[in-house]
Computed example of a mutant assay.
Amino acid sequence: MNRYKVAVFDLDGTLFNNQSQVSPKNLHALKCLKETGMLLGIASGRDYAHIASNYQKLASLMDFVVEENGTHFIDLHTNKETLTSEPVDSNQFVHFYQKLSTIPTAAFFNEAGKPYGIGDQAVLDFFMAEAHATEVNKISLSQLTQHVFHKIVVAHYLKDSTQLNQLVSRYLPHNLSATKSVNFLFEIQDAKTTKSSGIQAYIKTQGINMREVVAFGDGDNDLSMIKDAGLGVAMKNAMKDVKNVADMMTEEEANDDGVAKFIEKYFFHA
């Protein structure tokens, strides 16, 4: 395993347990990897400000972060943030979102570090609770066109999301992608922007290629990096499509320190 120079990790369902926390075992495993000289990174749908403020120990071990599914990366040694995606066409999104009006949904995005939301108040409240968010600036759908954003999340609280899945599949413009990291939301952004494209933009600055990257993930939005990495590792709890493209799979789920046990077995006891 010493041929890999970079290890990059998804958060929810990968490094995080069911309580959205990083276990001491996972933190220790990351520390051991870092001591070998590997560069460590996070590739998440979350923004770095949230990660840094809520997970300081984890953030302190990282060399870079690919945030919001590849729309930006941050070199944590220089604190330089680099934009790697085109913004979502807000007029196009409004037209798409109107097609979902038969179902209670809400949409969320960040602009200049501020969270904004539109749509059904009950869904807004549900999403904020799930995301551990404390505030959101609610705006109307018509006001959305006054904002610039590179990713927008559409959330729902349906037990059966079949109808919503069908509407998204039918009406989503071809230049946008919709991925799911958890069952109750879609993450919508430019179709060319993925976690893999964000990782590639960062490692290019370090003279590293994707063959030298090991990536860990579990969700729909991890498919690109699991497929493109030199070693793609799916969590035992990963979606079927992720497992299908992975090179290896952890023996334990995220809630049972699957990442730590994989690192210990294959990087230090192989």
Rank of each mutant, 00 (worst) to 15 (best):
A29Q: 15
A270W: 05
S85M: 03
F109D: 12
N137A: 08
S142T: 09
G113R: 04
N69L: 02
A246I: 01
S85L: 02
D89E: 15
I199E: 12
I263Y: 03
R170W: 05
I51Y: 01
E251D: 13
A229P: 10
K243W: 03
M235W: 02
L33V: 08
A29S: 14
V168L: 07
G258C: 11
V88G: 09
H95K: 10
R46V: 06
F93Y: 05
M62H: 02
E252T: 07
L15R: 04
S169Y: 15
Q163I: 09
H269I: 10
I226W: 00
C32Q: 11
S177R: 04
S140W: 03
K99W: 04
D125Q: 14
N221C: 04
S177P: 14
F126H: 10
L176H: 01
F109Y: 05
Y4H: 06
V22L: 13
F73V: 00
A107H: 06
S101L: 07
R3K: 15
H50E: 10
Q146M: 10
A112H: 14
Q92G: 15
F216Y: 10
S196V: 09
I203N: 03
K240S: 11
D256P: 11
L124A: 08
Q189S: 14
E67R: 05
S20T: 15
L83T: 12
F126K: 05
L83D: 07
S161F: 12
D222N: 04
L83F: 10
A49F: 05
K243E: 00
E130V: 06
G70Y: 01
N165M: 14
Y171Q: 03
V65P: 00
T179D: 13
T205F: 02
